[in-house]
Structures are given as structure tokens and as C-alpha cells.
Design a protein around this nucleic acid. Sequence first.
DNA 1: AACCTGTTTAGATATACTTCTAAATAGATC
DNA 2: GATCTATTTAGAAGTATATCTAAACAGGTT
Lengths: 88, 88
Amino acid sequence: MDFRKTFKALSDPVRLEILKMLKNGRMSAGDIASKFDITNATVSYHLSLLKQADLIYETKIKNFIYYELNTTVFDDLVIWIKQFSKEE
Amino acid sequence: MDFRKTFKALSDPVRLEILKMLKNGRMSAGDIASKFDITNATVSYHLSLLKQADLIYETKIKNFIYYELNTTVFDDLVIWIKQFSKEE
DNA sequence: AACCTGTTTAGATATACTTCTAAATAGATC
DNA sequence: GATCTATTTAGAAGTATATCTAAACAGGTT
């Protein structure tokens, strides 16, 4: 598996903050954006990168788009990183 | 702990390749560079980023500099990522 | 001390990333 | 169907990153 995109997605402070927010449950794009001092357009850009990296997924309800953590990818990531740990 | 630098370091294909090489044991800067189609200067730049991210460390012997994986940081990384896994 | 070998540093350039503003889309409501 | 709301897309601008060439440095060797 190729985690380059995943690591790139994780290398930005805004995106890390978004992921931490989503630990408490899904949020709409607007709710996420309201927590930052940057425009909605920029937050949308960050969300698209997180989505491309499979770290989050979206659900459309009415004219809201809700974002949610994709926990399985984090599990895959842990397995990948462990190849560099001592015991292997 | 702040892993932004770590993730940035992990987001480049050359640097990921260097880390994979170092799984088989320490290598000198020159040996590492010889495996790539880029200049020694560029490889040196990548090594410095990996070093800044604490993913590798160096040992100087004669006029060689040997690089080695810092396995403990990968363990810390696994712990950090697990906060996003389901069971927590 | 002069020189060779392995490696890094400095400066320049091209590419990629982050951010903005303005415009576009998609769905809901009036 | 006109309009409002939530969000994304397009295009532009500034900043950061990856790479190169050329020069510098540091440790051995002669």
C-alpha cells in the first residue's frame, strides 16, 4: 500500500486539527470551517485532500455535507508503520 | 507531541525509500545516494529532513557518516495514530 | 602542508502547496 | 421558478519544497 498521500494529508496543522475534531463525531463542512480563522473555500480544499487520502468520508444530507473519520485507514497505517519498529 | 514534521518527512517518496533501505541496517550517505538517480546534495537534503524529524540518527566514523533508523519514534507514532482507531 | 574522499551548505530555479476572492453548483424553501 | 443556504470550484498570488550546480568543509593519507 502506498501511504504517500496519507502522510501528506497528515502533514498540515489545519488538517490534523480537523481530524481531532472529527474524533467527537461527524460534522458538517460549515461547522468545521467555523472553528478556523480561514475561509470556507480553504477548509473545503483541506477536506478534499483528507478525502483523497481516505482519512475521512462524506455523507450528504439535505444540502449539508457531513464528514466523518474513516477509522479503518488509521488501522492500516499503524500496521504499515510497525514495519519500522524494533520487534519486527 | 507534535508530529507535523514527522508526517512531512514521511510524505516524500525518496525519503520513504531511504527509510525502507535502512530497515536492513545502517548505511553511509554515499551508499544511500548511489541507489538513487539524484545528486548526493539532494539526498543529503532529504537525510537532514529525516534527521530533523527524528526518524534517523547519524554516527560519524572516519570521514563517513552512517545513518540508522530511530525505531523508538515509530513506536511513538503508532501510539499517536491509534487515537483515531475505533476501539479508543 | 597539500591532496583526496565523503559529505554538506549556499544559491538558484522549477514545481507544488496554501490561501484568498469571486463565481458556480446543488438542494430546500417560499 | 426565484431565491436562499451550504458548499465547492476556478483562477490568482504568495510561500514552501525538491532539485541542481558549484563551492565549502572535515578527516585521512601522503
